[in-house]
């Protein structure tokens, strides 16, 4: 057994892993620390304070950031819901649809947004909206987000569905359940962990997007990333660090939820 351990481990790999974690976390931790800085200047540390959090909620720019937060979260919510519904339907068609000619093409189409560089999608979407005469605004962001969130929602759902034997639905149908009933009562509950994971992934991806949003957003419609970018261009200010820290907490909370959900599922 000890010989086996020897074969597996390489000296230095643990150090590399720790280095990897340091690289991944140090910028985030430092920004979190400095968000509690009492100083107006971002370079000088003058002790702990919550003033920049107060500034985010009640300061001169609070209106802008509140509106941006409302836009960001509402867009993420709708886009994730829509794309998860579309992806669930597509996954059922592909995994439970038997053999068919367009299977590979359908899979390719669904994963297309993953393969096209984001800036290209952004340009294409801008040109498209301009061509059909859509005025840029809230709706253009929403539509673009729904489209590129589909593959992110799709992958975990398909993975989950491939792990469910079809005997369950067949048994239900043998007991005179309609296809729709078998889907709703049997398949859907079993797919739920995949659907939740897909939804959360789509939600985060939508919340995260800057490039496409920046191209298709219209007058006065900002999301959090575009609002932060606009602010950061003029130099990093402490209130941006406070917003970043809050978004960090939201993101971590969401991963933790999805982690717990999947953990609970695998233990039952």
């Amino acid at each position: 057994m000890s010989a086996r351990g020897d074969v597996r481990t390489y000296s230095g790999f643990r150090a590399m892993t720790l280095l990897c974690l340091v690289v991944l976390y140090s910028p985030l931790i430092i920004v979190t620390i400095y968000s509690f800085n009492a100083s107006r200047s971002i370079t000088v540390w003058e002790g702990l304070s919550l003033q920049w959090y107060a500034d985010v909620f009640w300061g001169p720019e609070s209106g802008k950031f509140k509106q941006a937060a409302v836009n960001s979260f509402s867009i993420a919510l709708i886009a994730a819901t829509m794309s998860t519904a579309i992806a669930t339907s597509a996954a059922t068609g592909i995994v439970r649809g038997g053999r068919f000619r367009l299977r590979t093409a359908s899979l390719g189409l669904i994963s297309l947004p993953l393969m096209v560089p984001e800036i290209v999608t952004a340009v294409a979407t801008l040109i498209f909206f301009n061509f059909i005469g859509f005025t840029r605004g809230y709706l253009t962001i929403l539509v673009a987000h729904i489209a590129f969130c589909i593959p992110f929602a799709y992958l975990p759902i398909q993975a989950r569905m491939q792990g469910i034997e079809d005997t369950f639905e067949q048994a239900a149908q043998d007991l005179y359940a309609t296809k729709a009933q078998a889907f709703r009562r049997v398949l859907l509950p079993m797919m739920m962990p995949g659907i939740i994971a897909g939804f959360l992934l789509a939600f985060i991806v939508s919340l995260d997007d800057f490039i496409i949003t920046n191209f298709v957003k219209g007058a006065g419609v900002e999301t959090l990333p575009t609002a932060i970018f606009g602010s950061v261009k003029q130099g990093i200010k402490p209130n941006i660090m406070a917003i970043s820290t809050m978004l960090l907490v939201v993101s971590i909370a969401m991963v933790t939820i999805s982690y717990v959900v999947s953990k609970k599922d695998s233990s039952t």
Binding site: I94, V95, G97, G98, R99, L109, A182
Partner: peptide, 24 residues
């Protein structure tokens, strides 16, 4: 797992993703 439980309604299930991605 791959199955054909829903083969008969397959095209309807795939339509939203086809339409959405083809158009957008």
């Amino acid at each position: 797992v791959r199955s054909d439980t829903y083969a008969s309604v397959r095209n309807w299930l795939l339509l939203p993703s086809w339409a959405g991605l083809a158009i957008f």
